[in-house]
Design a binder for these strands. Structure first.
Length: 152
DNA sequence: GCCAACGTTGGC
DNA sequence: GCCAACGTTGGC
């Protein structure tokens, strides 16, 4: 079982949007490192923190789970999609997505500032300065610390 | 293969 | 809106 952190801009898609859907394809990821995780590493029942980025109060807002392993992201082949990639080729898909589903929304945001300050979270990739990767892995230890912050 | 120019992410 | 920190592109 793996743990992840996945970013979304709440103006585009928030934890409250996810809450109202049974299954949601996590599409539009156009970065090779993140693609490799989507395609090769994520497994059914893995859990992921939902992170609100590029907003007034960035941070972790809840939990979701992976409900379908990586499969081609068809938005890359759809000219009407904002995620259309004109260099793409359906016979040899470049971009992948997984399906996720809502587990819970935290009663408070675990802010980026709090992640950065916590002594046990200094190793967290998502909290490092300059980090732009929209999907990062989370260790079991980091996961448990954050869960205790959210539930404490 | 190098690297300058350019584009994007995302905190602030 | 600014800009640091990347990732990508393309000339050479």
């Amino acid at each position: 079982m793996n743990y992840w952190l996945m970013k979304s801009e709440p103006d585009a898609f928030s934890i409250d949007d996810l809450k109202h859907k049974t299954i949601e394809p996590w599409d539009g990821v156009r970065n090779y490192q993140a693609r490799n995780m989507l395609r090769d590493q994520m497994q059914i029942d893995d859990q992921a923190f939902f992170y609100h980025s590029n907003c007034r109060n960035p941070g972790i807002v809840g939990i979701m789970e992976i409900t379908k392993v990586g499969y081609p992201d068809s938005t890359a082949f759809d000219p009407s999609s904002q995620y259309f990639d004109p260099s793409g080729n359906p016979e040899n898909p470049r971009w992948y997505r997984v399906d996720v589903s809502f587990i819970k929304k935290f009663s408070r945001i675990i802010s980026l500032d709090e992640l950065k300050r916590h002594p046990l979270l200094q190793t967290m990739q998502a909290a490092r300065k300059g980090n732009r990767l929209s999907i990062t892995s989370v260790s079991l230890e980091e996961w448990q610390v954050i869960i205790s912050l959210a539930e404490g």
